[in-house]
Design a protein around this nucleic acid. Structure first.
Lengths: 336, 336
DNA sequence: GATTGACTTGGTAACGATAACATGGAATGA
DNA sequence: TCATTCCATGTTATCGTTACCAAGTCAATC
């Protein structure tokens, strides 16, 4: 096996010192333009690739931010990550992504693995962690941002929204359109803390209107799927056939519920209204469109990145900042 | 700002040498069990986290594999990545993920960034790269696997399937059920090379059956969306209303097309049959279920990981291995 | 013609860990 | 009892890069 090409090899080939090679790879370093071009050409020719492990070790900087999300395959988390990436890239910073499969123990391991790589900062989705996971974040010595949630006792900065309070306008809308027997599907899985919060918010919103908050149908473990929604809807129609509306923990389960209704000839919204959460693409295109709540995932990412840049520049690093994003009710034909 | 805790600090606090601390973090190293436990406790207390940049630099090993995918938010790529992660984790190896947004120039930059971190191997989705991207892969000196495709001229190992040939059974099925005027939606975007291949395969499959292969509707840039499918279907119904069946580049566009039909009162499959690609969850749950092709993304990931482990162990490193996965036709009500 | 300053380049040490080798002492066997 | 082995631990050098400091070149200025 051929040894990997190092700066030394490039320096020798170009007839300069390694230091000059190093400088020719840094945009703001002082090198003669011609020398730089020539060194770059030699490096390209040799197939040289900078070793960032060595660079990071020496400079004690890494130019990347670690981000954890529960699941790869989720349009909303993906939007948040994309927004973070986009804003950070303007400062030459990258994102190192890891996913937890909705498991805080996996999150703990992931946090440790990410911290080993010495990121400049770390972003975690959600505000619930293992004690050790939390301690790792606190002792990390780098800026921490929690997103997609508004934890009671945040580790540090926060850019998120209240999953519980987001339910109130939705229940309000259903109540205002005359529904009284309203059920909730999902939010029973330990790992899906945001789903649990939504169900709690649903119960509170129902109680606040003197409505019965006990029509709760479990939907199983995350990731939330359409199939879960269909099965839960089947159970709901069997157990509580007089239900007038159902709020689902996610648009995906809401769509599953909608298909179950279609298969059984149950009309939506005439026989039963269906609402979801997340403003996923499917909610806006299926027939009828599903009433949902848009948590503005891109905005969460943007605010998160702004917090990161602010703290990384050393501004206001002492105080803990909390950005609250306000979710938006989007009314579709499914509750019409 | 507090200086980060290093092994030296742990060693001093535990009253041992740094080497012993180092060993107490390696599972297979020879350290007294009691000493190890005590050092671990001290480290935990101090909030010490191993610096893997230093470890990787010294040991010239990194224990991770770089993987590029076109898009975060895609269930199929996510399944492939999950399968790779799962198999590799059994060997203590991790996955470092990056996404290209379906842009080979972004891919080139990503490949360079990933190689700088010195992965043990690299997996790329797709077989089309910029010349420089390809050269980076070739000169990387580490195992390379291309997935989700069967390139004419692969860089090294391959675990994928022929997007073009996958179209033949689908067109065959439509022809066998009596459809002759068959259209194709999508596959017109440069960045979506797999979509382009599918469209090419569609044309070939049509020509092989002496059917007119010119009903091609563009759907725009990736990522492929449901909305694109709906818009393309609207165009198709307007321009070629006598079309009997339509194959979509993805289940997502197929579902969009289905919703457009529902809105217009066009019956599926009676008035027009719809087929997709990818065996996404939605294809199996919507009404009617969409006929699709399952490329078995998990299997692609599994085979990829096996290739990686094989080459990393140094077996058969000289030859280039090509795993061909066989996509599977899944018939649903949308072509019934 | 000496002085100044801007620009460019080079030499040396160090980042934090581990590979390789060395060593001390306990355990084992004859 | 003494040689031998083995286990646990320590010492030294090094991975590839960049921070820091030093010095050389050249043109402009007085």
């Amino acid at each position: 096996m051929r040894r990997t090409v190092t700066m030394k090899d490039v320096a020798k080939a170009a007839g300069v010192s390694v230091m000059t090679v190093s400088r020719s790879f840094k945009a703001d370093a002082s090198v003669n333009a011609k020398t730089r071009a020539q060194i770059r050409a030699v490096a390209e020719e040799l197939g040289y690739v900078l070793d960032s492990t060595a660079a990071n070790l020496r400079s004690q900087r890494s130019d990347f931010v670690a981000v954890t999300i529960p699941s790869l395959n989720n349009a909303n988390f993906a939007d948040t990550v994309s927004a973070i990436s986009e804003v950070l890239s303007q400062s030459g910073m990258q994102v190192l992504l890891g996913y937890t499969n909705y498991d805080i123990h996996a999150e703990e391991r992931l946090i440790e693995q990410l911290l080993r790589r010495k990121p400049e900062a770390i972003v975690v989705t959600g505000g619930r962690h293992t004690p050790r996971g939390r301690k790792l974040l606190e002792k990390s010595g780098i800026p921490v941002v929690e997103t997609w949630d508004l934890p009671q006792d945040p580790v540090a900065h926060v850019a998120g929204f209240s999953n519980a309070r987001a339910m109130d306008p939705l229940v309000g809308h259903l109540a205002d359109t005359g529904r009284r027997r309203i059920a909730f599907i999902g939010g029973d899985a330990d790992g899906d803390t945001r789903g649990v919060d939504r169900r709690r918010g649903f119960v509170q919103a129902m109680e606040a209107r003197d409505l019965d908050p006990t029509r709760l149908i479990p939907a199983g473990q995350p990731p939330i799927s359409m199939l879960q929604g269909a099965q839960a809807m089947a159970q709901l129609l069997a157990d509580m056939p007089d239900t007038e509306a159902v709020v689902c923990v996610s648009d995906l389960s809401a769509f599953g519920a909608l298909t179950e209704c279609a298969r059984r000839g149950v009309r939506v919204p005439e026989d039963i209204a269906i609402a979801g959460f997340g403003a996923y693409e499917i909610a806006g295109i299926c027939v009828p469109r599903i009433t949902t709540v848009n948590p503005h995932p891109g905005l969460i990412g943007k605010r998160t990145a702004e917090l990161l840049l602010m703290t990384l520049r050393g501004e206001r690093s002492s105080e803990t900042i909390r950005y609250e994003i306000r979710p938006e009710l989007v009314i579709g034909g499914s509750t019409g």
